[in-house]
Design a protein around this nucleic acid. Structure first.
Lengths: 143, 143
DNA sequence: TTATTAAAATACCAAAAGGTCTTTTAATAT
DNA sequence: ATATTAAAAGACCTTTTGGTATTTTAATAA
């Protein structure tokens, strides 16, 4: 569905938010281990997320990643869009730029509701809502 | 949604089938032009499709690509699966191999119906059915 | 039988994705 | 101050994807 970077980013963000709800500020090593993602790549991705303003961090002892709790909840769609664009939930199944309601490819009509459903799903779910779901138990983020 | 190779392959296959219904056997140059795909890459992809047994071809004068009309219709899913696997319509939104009904990620339940819809759509539609739709007009494959 | 035509095969090439590793910078505790 | 800790920065590296170009093989028409 999504590319690796997006997958690791989503898992990492939800994990950080979940830990934040427990009063903990995890670092790269912990996040990578817990979401089962490559250590250095996870570091790079978390740092990109900080630079994009989705996440905060502090260096040094006691450092790690955390969210600005005063900001509104972060929809998955915002993260997905920032990392890999909208090709997954927009754009033609045949890859035609000209394809649209006026000028449909043979799959356009059938794909439209699916794209809408994906768009809605990642637009409604937020990093925070998934962390709450995860906290309740019954779901996994790794291992 | 799909990668470039899959997109070009689907457009190319539908175009060849459509031309076949008109009694014509198109070559690489024509297919690439009509589906608006890179010439040499289109050639490579069509040749792969032949090697995979989805398509037939003849060399030399009057040569080109065509389908064995005695074979059953070809579902898009078969082509997609052969080219890029099932990651688009199967597999976890978070990228977890362990994710499933028993061991769900926080998105699993919500994504399940979407994956099922994609799977159904590309399982039901065939190269032939889309070529018939295209023949009726009102849809595009390129240009 | 030889041109001509067109696919097959093959050899590259460039960009993007995915991933690793080392060095630098900043925060904090001693 | 300084040792320690941990993120930031950045240099690489590998694989996959996307794409180009040339040579070879096969079919056919003259």
């Amino acid at each position: 569905m999504f590319n690796k970077e997006t997958e690791y980013a989503l898992r990492g963000l939800v994990y950080v938010q979940f830990q934040q709800m427990l009063g903990h500020k995890p670092g790269i090593v912990e996040v990578a281990r817990e979401i089962e993602a490559p250590l250095f790549y996870t570091g790079k991705i978390l740092q990109r997320l900080v630079k994009m303003g989705f996440l905060m961090s502090t260096k040094g002892k006691g450092g790690g990643f955390y969210f600005d709790a005063t900001k509104p909840e972060l929809p998955l769609k915002t993260v997905v869009q920032a990392i890999e664009g909208d090709k997954t939930y927009a754009g033609c199944g045949f890859g035609l730029k000209e394809c649209g309601d006026e000028n449909p490819c043979p799959l356009h009509e059938q794909f439209a509701p699916i794209r809408a459903a994906i768009s809605k799903l990642i637009g409604q779910n937020t990093v925070q809502s998934l962390a709450r779901d995860f906290r309740k138990g019954g779901t996994i983020l790794g291992l």
